[in-house]
């Protein structure tokens, strides 16, 4: 998901910085690149007479490093959920109590008690998504709701599978596939993980990003992919289907938090409340094409997003989705070693 947003300095940033120069207050937002709808910013600026400045980053590490250094001047940051506890632990976030805000009633129940911010004392939902598999139906018509698509590819897909080089997602999906738990350090499990991956690799075509275009063009017939990307590919190639691996698949949600050293705390809180309004949340989604976790926002979304199978997880597969915490260093070291062996 990160590479998708990696495209830097967008029109959004430009629009946001040039719009209102003589506003009452200011708000400095630090968010992923190519991820913020300029219309949303404009609407907020007009409603509250606040000048918004948008700065973007390309990874959670970049954002954390910069904020930890202090004096960043940002009021709002949008880390991926599993990074929120790190921010909290380091004392970087302000406890703004979104759960007591006026629009909190719009947050879908599923997103209230999230593991990384129980009860929502710090953060407000921005967008969420899943990491699953995408398959071209013309090549394979069997069950796609399984990680076997890339870990034990069916005959028809051998040599035609891509795996995105997102280490944490892939290792954890493989851990789920062999029956382990996220971030495990259990050697038995990890041995199976390594063997499964090493055995599967010869059946892969590539380990590459840029999945949306290549799914569309048919460069490969299956890939590990994010739901939003698969959605965009399907709009142009109706043969593409999205699968939610029943063995377990990662969920992620980016969350809007206010920094402890924010200078414009009141405006930042206004913004948190503002984006929990269904109409405004829909603006977020219509730009980056992911779901947002706000009840009633579907009504305001573009027609093609309503009822999209990539955005509506089937009932029976919802439980398989898991938030993966940021794994401890000891676990990550083993994962990196497995990863190096895989890509050597």
């Amino acid at each position: 998901m990160h590479l998708i947003r990696l495209t830097t300095a967008t029109a959004a940033a430009l629009l946001a910085t040039t719009a209102l120069s003589f506003a009452e207050g200011e708000l400095n937002i630090y968010n992923w690149g190519n991820y913020t709808n300029p219309e949303l910013i404009k609407k907020f600026e007009e409603k509250y007479d606040v000048k918004v400045t948008l700065t973007d980053y390309d990874s959670n590490t970049t954002a954390l490093t910069k904020i930890e250094a202090g004096g960043s001047g940002f009021d709002i940051v949008v880390p991926t959920g599993n990074w929120v506890p790190i921010y909290v632990e380091k004392g970087l976030l302000l406890e703004t109590r979104p759960d007591q805000m006026e629009n909190f009633k719009n947050v879908a129940e599923r997103w209230v008690d999230v593991p990384w911010d129980p009860g929502r004392h710090y953060t407000v939902p921005w967008q969420w998504g899943t990491t699953g598999v995408a398959v071209n139906k013309t090549s394979y018509s069997g069950d796609v709701n399984t990680s076997a698509i890339f870990l034990d590819p069916p005959e028809e897909l051998v040599g035609k599978v891509n795996v995105v080089p997102e280490m944490n997602d892939i290792i954890n999906m493989t851990i789920f596939y062999v029956g382990g738990e996220a971030c495990t350090e259990d050697k038995e499990v990890l041995k199976k993980v390594r063997d499964t991956l090493v055995a599967a690799k010869p059946k892969w075509l590539s380990m590459d990003y840029g999945t949306t275009d290549k799914l569309k063009s048919g460069e490969y017939q299956a890939t590990v992919n994010w739901n939003g990307s698969t959605f965009r590919a399907r709009l142009e190639n109706p043969e593409v289907v999205y699968g939610y691996p029943k063995e377990g698949y990662p969920l992620w949600m980016d969350a809007v938090a206010v920094l402890k050293d924010a200078k414009n705390v009141e405006n930042a809180k206004l913004f948190q409340n503002f984006i929990m309004e269904p109409e405004n949340a829909a603006l977020i989604s219509s730009f980056a094409r992911y779901a947002n976790g706000i009840k009633g926002s579907e009504a305001f979304m573009p027609e093609d997003m309503k009822g999209a199978p990539e955005l509506d997880t089937p009932e029976d597969l919802q439980a398989a989705g898991q938030f993966i915490p940021v794994c401890p260093k000891s676990a990550r070291d083993i994962y990196t070693a497995i990863w190096t062996e895989l890509q050597k």
Partner: peptide
């Protein structure tokens, strides 16, 4: 190369990026 097999440059990037070493 499709990233299946790394060269030194890619390996160094892994350490600064996802490997965090």
């Amino acid at each position: 190369g499709g990233g299946k097999n790394m060269m030194i440059g890619n390996f160094i990037e892994l350490q600064f990026g996802q490997g965090r070493n």
